[in-house]
Write a protein that binds this DNA or RNA. Sequence first.
DNA 1: AATGAATGAGAGTTCATTCAT
DNA 2: CATGAATGAACTCTCATTCAT
Lengths: 219, 219, 219, 219
Amino acid sequence: MAQTDTVTRILNTAEVLFAERGFAETSLRNITSKAKVNLAAVNYHFGSKKALIQAVFARYLDPFTERFHTALDDLEAHYGDRPIPLEVLLESMARTVLEVPAERNSLRVFIRLLGLAYTQAQGHLRRYIQQHYGSVFMRFSELVRRATPELPDAERFWRLHFMLGTVIFTLSGLDALRDIAEKDYGEQVTVRDLIHRLRPVVVAGMNAPLPEAAGASSR
Amino acid sequence: MAQTDTVTRILNTAEVLFAERGFAETSLRNITSKAKVNLAAVNYHFGSKKALIQAVFARYLDPFTERFHTALDDLEAHYGDRPIPLEVLLESMARTVLEVPAERNSLRVFIRLLGLAYTQAQGHLRRYIQQHYGSVFMRFSELVRRATPELPDAERFWRLHFMLGTVIFTLSGLDALRDIAEKDYGEQVTVRDLIHRLRPVVVAGMNAPLPEAAGASSR
Amino acid sequence: MAQTDTVTRILNTAEVLFAERGFAETSLRNITSKAKVNLAAVNYHFGSKKALIQAVFARYLDPFTERFHTALDDLEAHYGDRPIPLEVLLESMARTVLEVPAERNSLRVFIRLLGLAYTQAQGHLRRYIQQHYGSVFMRFSELVRRATPELPDAERFWRLHFMLGTVIFTLSGLDALRDIAEKDYGEQVTVRDLIHRLRPVVVAGMNAPLPEAAGASSR
Amino acid sequence: MAQTDTVTRILNTAEVLFAERGFAETSLRNITSKAKVNLAAVNYHFGSKKALIQAVFARYLDPFTERFHTALDDLEAHYGDRPIPLEVLLESMARTVLEVPAERNSLRVFIRLLGLAYTQAQGHLRRYIQQHYGSVFMRFSELVRRATPELPDAERFWRLHFMLGTVIFTLSGLDALRDIAEKDYGEQVTVRDLIHRLRPVVVAGMNAPLPEAAGASSR
DNA sequence: AATGAATGAGAGTTCATTCAT
DNA sequence: CATGAATGAACTCTCATTCAT
């Protein structure tokens, strides 16, 4: 058992390379040669490159989903019929996001992968994520709805995605930004620091005043 | 001159395909065949695929930079030594962003390209943008600094990028989101609507209270 | 014993797939997955793909050879020194061909396999068949020789193969032809019907007048 | 012009290898290395292996079809309303088959390819041939119908295919048979000799008496 | 007796780029 | 100024076979 088994080695290497360079730019040869594994092993164990990509995500999202459901169960048990405050919900989500990959010591990778999932043209991946993990997001959305009754539904929808963008975009582009920040402000920033910084911004964003009625909105 | 010349045809086609599928996923064959242009034409006119990508960006960013400088000149002339309010700065930027591609009728494409520039592993592109357009961003940053004197420098740096993330992420992932929004809330959303919605959120985010002192954070 | 044993399952599946798609186009994975058998089982039980192909043939040809020898024994016993008429010989062969796979309920598969053996580039198979089953064909040829004393030896040799071609080609390409025939003439044809139709044609072909002397033929 | 151009070199090599070993058993690497041509050239010029296979056929069938139509035109002009005798039709077809590839000095290859087209599992090829060359076969069939008015339509259909089988099977398996014939009967046989031998057999087969009514035709 | 894991070889295809014309 | 032809490299995937257990 001294040497990690092939499947794990592939997954570990793949997630790092995917996160660094994207899906299309990472070839199976890159992965297998770095993982010191036969080229055919990917197809043997996963079936295809697409399936490998999905497996990389599943390894993060499966435990995340499970824990997040549990966390929400606890919150609902505690608050009963009263709505759970927005801050608490966000806090709970953030904590779960931090916990899961912490064990694998690669939060950065996880976030970066999430970013890629949104921006890279991997339709199959978007479908996969929606199918397998859509329900937990729906549950969270519904709780957010109860926490922000004053927001029109459409507005809340968009703001959730605004905030999603804030988080994913920042964290997934972290490497480049971190270099600049370090040079200019002498700070060494971890993902945890950023999440700490993000919290008030996200809350303020969600609670921002409604835009004035669109009035003579052009074209 | 009846038929648009080769270079323009390539640029027009390339920007659409890049925006739709990303850089790596768009082959020169895709571009040249759709543009009805010889395969070798790209290398002939631009030298390489990388140079084509940069040219696509330059066609947007050159006029943008010029106009934005002008707009900032006007503002500075008007406000003199007084700091320009944050809302005004953001408003000015938004207007310029909207104006430039409006002439080419492809705001969506522009935004999507910006998103790709950040998330796709095109180091050369990031370098190119920083080299050619870094100065205008620096000027804008400095003005924001004066508009938000109470924010620590590092905090402002990060918040600016948070907000950049909000905007680019949302707008560049627009197509997918728009489908959902339309189905669920019966809204048909344009980029302009979204910018309208984004404004209060961005302002609130920038003005959010500072995070409580991080305590003995770090990883 | 309720579940058929591995070897038989492999043979059953292999013969069907080979007949449907040919040898090269049928992979061991196709066979083993459809047979619900381990991939390595083929190599374990048969040694190689070639050996499997031969085994598939042997399962038909061994009983065929045995019965055909018996049938010819009977005929020789009955006719003594007199030559056995051509029609009788053909009839006897046809009956044997029909009997053997009838038990396995897959005449079509058998014929199709025979066709493949001739047309697909499996040198090893041709050699195998010739080695193991050449003698019964020789015996049959000799009887045909006595039944058609007026034919020059070379002519008889070729005509036998002409007729072999007629039969194998028709029956092994049956599926495609059957579709056409059914559509155009509203007939639903079985292999038995075709053999019924083939008989007079084959006899007439064998008894056709000799070609006029080739004159100064050559290529 | 000293060295034949790439496309022709590919076609020449491909047709020989296909004829020798079949389609699936011949790799593009086989072809391009033997033709001393870059591997990518096949995809560049033909698009895919399938398209190459079709091109190989078209190079024979296009001139064949044209000439055969001309030959049938001549016959119809000569016979007017009277039916063209079966022997004349077959003779005309045989002559055309012999003429066309004679110029390319590779009748054997052509016939072998035809055999493969029927027996190898290349659905696309069967479709291609039917689409492009179905009409000339239909025209021929109709003339045969008028030449054999006493035959029921279905019977004629099947007999035509019987005879097709005779010819294609024999000629395409020629190499193996020729070896035997040469050893046993000291003959050296050319395709032309065989066609000479085939003629009376085919005619006799077409004119064979009808099979007795199927009576108690079993399953 | 049987199998999951692994492997080297080779398949067809696509790529950005180059070059002679 | 422009292009058809060509190319070497790299791609994902499938193959029959082997081997430790």
